[in-house]
Simulated assay, not measured.
Amino acid sequence: MAETSTGSAWIRRFHPAPDAPVRLVCFPYAGSGASYYHPLSRALAPDVQVLAVQYPGRQDRADEPCAEDLTVLADRVAEELLDRCDPPFVLFGHSMGAVVAYEVALRLEALGAPPRGLVATGRRAPSLPRVRRVRFADDAELVAELKRLNAGNEAVTRLLDDEGVLRIVLPTLRGDYRAIERYHRPSAPPLRCPVVAMGGDADPVTPVADLEAWERHTTASFRLRVFRGGHFFLDTHTDAVRQEILDHIAAVTPR
């Protein structure tokens, strides 16, 4: 998969868009990597420059240990983005990525380089506790959890029946679950930028009420959009999700 250098092990750029007036920084879900956002990058170029964050422990960083503390992970990503925050930028994260994006946004605001907006999908608000303990599951239970989250996606189900794929995926996924399940911000501070939350009406792990709670994490405007579907609703509503992102970008960035 072609990409151009950003000078950082943490940031991927698949489709250079040097004249784009805005950047969208994308954060992957647990077990995933930057390449998940390649299709979105292709669809938005050249009007939006998409940058995808690459966490350690996957894809071309597979020889590095996973970050098992989300606050430390956010510290590192914020450092990497600080010199890449011009032109105006918006953060977008799915599931675990939504929380990492939120934590990075807090840090960038404190450093004087605030994002114009945040799009959080498939994830409860940071102040809500996570009661499930998937990190303690054995391999069979973990695979069952993945199949539940990807219900209806036959391609993913077939991959999860492949022992070779599981040997690669499960250690990374388990490391990410250790990080996300230890994370809780009962008094999480609000952002100063507008927030959009999106989710599926049949998501087995993120009910709509948990998405609504994102409103308390911004002093600016908030919008909630609920689609038909499960945890990975964005894979079956790609055009609508992309339009929501574009509408958010248009609303929070100067013409």
Rank of each mutant, 00 (worst) to 15 (best):
M198V: 07
A67F: 05
Y183K: 10
A62D: 14
L128F: 08
M1Q: 15
V22D: 00
L224Q: 13
C26Q: 07
L108E: 02
K147D: 07
D60M: 02
R42Y: 07
W214C: 07
V134L: 12
D247P: 07
P88C: 07
N150C: 15
V205E: 13
M96P: 11
D162G: 07
V72R: 12
M1V: 13
A98P: 06
Q59T: 12
G93A: 13
A101L: 08
D83N: 12
G152T: 08
I180C: 08
P28H: 08
T238M: 14
A43D: 07
N150L: 13
R133E: 15
R182H: 10
G33P: 07
I249K: 00
D47Q: 07
P254D: 10
N153R: 12
T253K: 03
E103P: 07
G200W: 00
S187A: 15
P87N: 03
A125I: 02
D235C: 13
A125C: 04
A140P: 09
G112C: 09
L118K: 02
L173Y: 04
E80T: 02
H231A: 10
G93Y: 01
T236V: 15
A213W: 04
Y177F: 10
R133D: 15
V131Y: 13
G122A: 05
D63S: 15
L111Y: 14
S41N: 06
S5T: 10
L73G: 02
R132K: 14
G33M: 05
L40P: 00
D239I: 11
V205R: 14
